[in-house]
């Protein structure tokens, strides 16, 4: 008995973003994740590993170990990330945080420039997470990185104006971040496009939670955003950034070296990060910012399989 394959006729697609010196393309899908039988996923989901501009204070040993000799040298660390095979480097300007070194915009911009010069993959630059401070430093960073086609964030409802203007002026793309609400995601995308930044230079971050810590909220927001994008809602049709590493490595299940009933830490921690990532991949995530190189390797092996054709 022949089964009539049920295919959705999507009318629209996700914007395609181009990043970095070699023009890495992300997004652009015209179907739900990995449903190759009814549409195109022209670009596979991409990965970045995080680099801090100062030694991270709260990373567990298992996470520091692959970078043990470079934790104090962001340039060497970034090169190592490229060696590990990341599609991109995600530089986090932690030193600008008022609690840490309260580094100035010029200081962090210098570091960002040095890192960008040392690599040939696209650079993602992330602020310190304090909205006011990021609103000050990221425009200066954007200027220093002119022409590098970086992805810069995070812009929030409170600081997007200064960041968007600089990102637009110096030829970069922006990460728009809003807390776990599809309408807020959409609203910020609208505000940013109203400043003249084209939609294909915006990626949104719905503030994801890790496996076991509210992952289902961002999961459903991504599914809804993808449905919206494919049915013509342009303001939801941007690539989605997933800060997986940052969230997964907060979880006890990843960090705690010694809980016998959960089994040895090595596989458990890696699986906490990869499962968080693969779950967002099947919901519509596009850019995956991870921390451990082994998680990235495993995630890519999963994506290799998921990208195989499944036409009927």
């Amino acid at each position: 008995m022949a089964v009539t394959i049920a295919k959705e006729r999507w009318t629209s697609k996700v914007a395609e973003m181009t990043l970095g010196p070699k023009g890495l393309k992300v997004g652009g899908e015209s179907t739900l994740p990995f449903l190759h039988f009814e549409g195109e996923m022209p670009n596979r989901p991409v990965t970045a590993l995080e680099v801090f501009d100062m030694e991270p204070q709260d990373w567990p040993d298992i996470l520091k170990e692959p970078f043990a000799d470079v934790l104090n040298d962001p340039v060497a660390w970034a090169k190592k990330v490229v060696e590990y095979g990341a599609d991109m480097v995600a530089l986090r300007l932690m030193s600008a945080h008022p609690d840490w070194k309260d580094a100035s915009a010029d200081e962090v911009a210098k570091t960002a420039k040095a890192v960008a010069e040392a690599i040939d993959v696209p650079l993602i630059v992330l602020g310190c997470g304090v909205e006011e401070k990021d609103g000050q430093i990221l425009p200066v960073v954007a200027e220093a990185l002119e022409g590098k086609k970086c992805l810069i964030g995070c812009a929030t409802a409170d600081n997007y104006k200064s960041i968007t203007a600089a990102v637009n002026g110096y030829g970069h793309s922006v990460i728009a971040s809003s807390p776990l609400d599809i309408n807020l995601c959409k609203q910020l995308n609208i505000l940013i496009t109203e400043m003249g930044l084209p939609l294909d230079r915006i990626a949104f971050d719905p503030l994801v939670g890790a496996l076991g810590y509210g992952i289902e909220y961002a999961y459903s927001i991504m599914e809804r955003a993808r449905m919206g994008a494919l049915t013509g809602d342009k303001m939801l049709a941007t690539p989605i950034v997933c800060f997986v590493g940052m969230e997964a490595w907060k979880a006890k299940e990843a960090k705690d070296p010694d809980v016998p009933e959960w089994g040895p830490q090595a596989d458990r921690a890696i699986l906490w990060e990869t499962t968080t990532a693969t779950t967002f991949a099947i919901a519509g995530g596009t850019i995956f910012i991870l921390r451990h190189p082994e998680s990235m390797k495993r995630f890519n092996a999963f994506i290799d399989e998921a990208m195989k054709p499944n036409a009927y």
């Binding site: 496996l211 076991g212 509210g214 992952i215 289902e216 999961y219 299940e253 009933e261 959960w262 089994g263 040895p264 830490q265 090595a266 596989d267 458990r268 699986l271 906490w272 499962t275 779950t279």
Partner: peptide
């Protein structure tokens, strides 16, 4: 049957 491989699956089931 190792907990480190099963706990992520059980946790995701609980969430989804």
């Amino acid at each position: 049957a190792e907990p480190q491989h099963i706990l992520p699956v059980i946790t995701l089931r609980l969430n989804v």
